[in-house]
Amino acid sequence: MTWWLLGGLAAGCYFFKITGVLAAGSFRLSGAGQSFLAYLTPAVLSGLIVVQTFDGGGRLTISALTAGVTTGAVATWMKAPLPAVLLVASAATAAIRLL
C-alpha cells in the first residue's frame, strides 16, 4: 500500500465524520438521502463479496476460493463468531488447493 493511498483513506474516512458533525443542526438529510446511505453499505459489501469470490481476472470463475468462501458462508449461517468464520473459509480454501 502506498503512503498516498493511506493518507487518502485516513483523510476520506475522517472527512465524512467531521462533515457530519459540523453540518448537524444546519443541514438535514432528505428521506431519500437517508435511505441511500443506509442501503449503500449492504450494496457495496455484496459487490465486494461477488468480485472477491468470482473474479478470476475479468472472468466469472469458480475456484478453490469460491468453495472456501461458501464454507465460510455456512459457518456464518451457523452463527460462528467472525474469527472462526475466517479460519474455516481460509482452511477450506487451502485444503482444496492441496488436492
Binding site: 500500500m1 502506498t2 498516498w4 493511498l5 487518502g8 483513506l9 476520506g12 474516512c13 465524512f16 465524520k17 467531521i18 462533515t19 457530519g20 458533525v21 453540518a23 448537524a24 443542526g25 443541514f27 438535514r28 438529510l29 437517508q34 446511505l37 443506509a38 449503500l40 453499505t41 457495496v44 459489501l45 465486494l48
Partner: peptide
C-alpha cells in the same frame, strides 16, 4: 489505489449520516 479508495469511501459514507444524527 483508486479502486481501493473508492470502495473504502463508499463504505465510510454512512458514518457521515450517523454524525448528522448525533448532534
Amino acid at each position: 489505489p483508486m479502486s481501493a479508495l473508492g470502495a473504502a469511501l463508499l463504505l465510510a459514507a454512512r458514518n457521515g449520516a450517523y454524525a448528522l444524527s448525533m448532534s
